[in-house]
Design a protein around this nucleic acid. Sequence first.
DNA 1: TTTGTATGCATGTACGTGCAAGTTTTGCGC
DNA 2: GCGCAAAACTTGCACGTACATGCATACAAA
Lengths: 153, 153
Amino acid sequence: MTHTAPTPTRVPPVSDAATTWQRILLLTARVENKLATVLQRRHGIGLSEYRALGHLATSPTSELRMQELADKLGLNQSSVTRLVARLNAADFAYRDLCADDKRGVYAVITDTGRARYAEASHTYEETLSGALEEEGRADPRLAAALTAMGALS
Amino acid sequence: MTHTAPTPTRVPPVSDAATTWQRILLLTARVENKLATVLQRRHGIGLSEYRALGHLATSPTSELRMQELADKLGLNQSSVTRLVARLNAADFAYRDLCADDKRGVYAVITDTGRARYAEASHTYEETLSGALEEEGRADPRLAAALTAMGALS
DNA sequence: TTTGTATGCATGTACGTGCAAGTTTTGCGC
DNA sequence: GCGCAAAACTTGCACGTACATGCATACAAA
């Protein structure tokens, strides 16, 4: 008889769902990376900063509670505390205490912040749709999915 | 005539592509978070560790060059240096020098690592498909897109 | 061989984020 | 009114990652 090597654990095969999920993650990583790089180079702001400004700028009152902003960004409270601190340091936003609920804090966008966002949004939109089109060309199945979701026209 | 407030910059509307992209990001954040939490709680390993083990385990030689691993994971080379160091500390992998190219380093999975991956993969696969189904139910357009890509059956 | 350049990693450092703990305020039951 | 849990933030700390740099090796040209 032949020697049997000390059998290493059999590893179950990777499912289609997991494989596809990996593709999705690599896609988002590439796109997010490109967005971050371009935004930083051309406008000197990060991705979270940009998106925070976007939410604040499109708020009817130009302000948002910290927790609201956290939810919209998919970050937690403490991250938003520091994010708003950075925006404040750059004069893109300031903190304002709620009169009615003294626990609450509003993040309010400044005109400077609004202007910076307006400039950057052109870059952001262009870069995003460009990147998505490119990804779509490289993977027709992805293109179909993105179109179905409204990210590609 | 009426007073005109000091006109703040007009902010261009957010495109459909950007809105959809945000939905995709929030989706991936939720799913990745759930995966990370469950994997950490039930098996004591992080997401990057799990995926690295997966790539190593499914490699025909049970090993990968550092840079290869970085590409597959969507991380950069320095992150992988530290990732493999963590795997090494946990006895899930070890570093092996290439004989032919003395610059090169292989990350090699151990039987312990392979076993841990095999255990965790059940959890991972279940959690992933569960999360995707749930997301799909909450958003039919997303369900269609995920199905088109092969992530949902 | 020697020189110059590229490749493959490792290390120092900085940054953004999450978690846990702490503070202040609110609201509720009594 | 009083106590007390919950809510809204902030802060300390640790972790994972990226970028820049450095080092050793490989390769090509002279």
